[in-house]
Design a protein around this nucleic acid. Sequence first.
DNA 1: TATTGTTATACTCTATAACTATA
DNA 2: TATAGTTATAGAGTATAACAATA
Lengths: 147, 147
Amino acid sequence: MDERLRRFLGFRLKRVFNLIRADLLEQLVPLGLHITTFSTLVVIVDHPGLRQSALADTLDIKSSNMVAIIDDLEQRGWIERQRVPEDRRAFALYVTESGQRLCEKAVALASEHESKLLTCLSDKELESLMHMLEKIETTAEYNDAEQ
Amino acid sequence: MDERLRRFLGFRLKRVFNLIRADLLEQLVPLGLHITTFSTLVVIVDHPGLRQSALADTLDIKSSNMVAIIDDLEQRGWIERQRVPEDRRAFALYVTESGQRLCEKAVALASEHESKLLTCLSDKELESLMHMLEKIETTAEYNDAEQ
DNA sequence: TATTGTTATACTCTATAACTATA
DNA sequence: TATAGTTATAGAGTATAACAATA
């Protein structure tokens, strides 16, 4: 890569992100999942009854873009929308049995594959990498909220 | 973010990448640049006479997608395509004077803005972060080449 | 035959505005 | 009036296949 461009974190991130994304996608597509449907499924499994708006916030996806993702998962029979009695505008999301099974399979595949990609880093390094990324994210969010 | 999703580097990366990307784009758009045209311009400035195919490799962009990016920069008068006499299939790329000026302005803006986003990290941390990302990238490329 | 640049095309992800039904 | 979900739409980025000109 170009010497000057390489000094920008953004461009390093882009390359590594694209690498991991392409790699992960290769694992997910045969299961009928994409990046967005995969991450959505995991969150619904881990937080049964979550509403679409909260889900969109969690995943940092616009609620308008959330709709098609949830439609996809629902049409394939992996999750269900259920009306919330206390607020009839909202939908609570629940995983089905087959969705649960698929999720565990996909998570296993994904983490196995990601760890293969990360064998070049020690556990300590990986932890430090994760922590730094989290720090960037939270301070950026804080700065955004300040404005 | 979801506890289980957060353990995947891919999803941490995605969030930080999107943050930085949106931030950078806000700086570039008023100058008439996007992420792709910006990075392309920088590489051409730093490597005058580079051919399109080499540029595409450097930027990890498909050569078919490179065409529109170069068209854009050329139409705005910031770079020029010049036929290579030794290989009449190829174009060598050169920056114009105004392209050079724009490039320096954009780089200054971008690095200033990125460093604002990274104040939460020490120089040593940032260096380590860059180094780890580079390590992931190079080992992944090596593994790809192996297959 | 292989490569450089190109066109056409499709799909994923992201972003915004406007709508509906409820609150 | 505000919010939850939805529709429509546009743009950025990425990916593949096929082509013309040249090697």
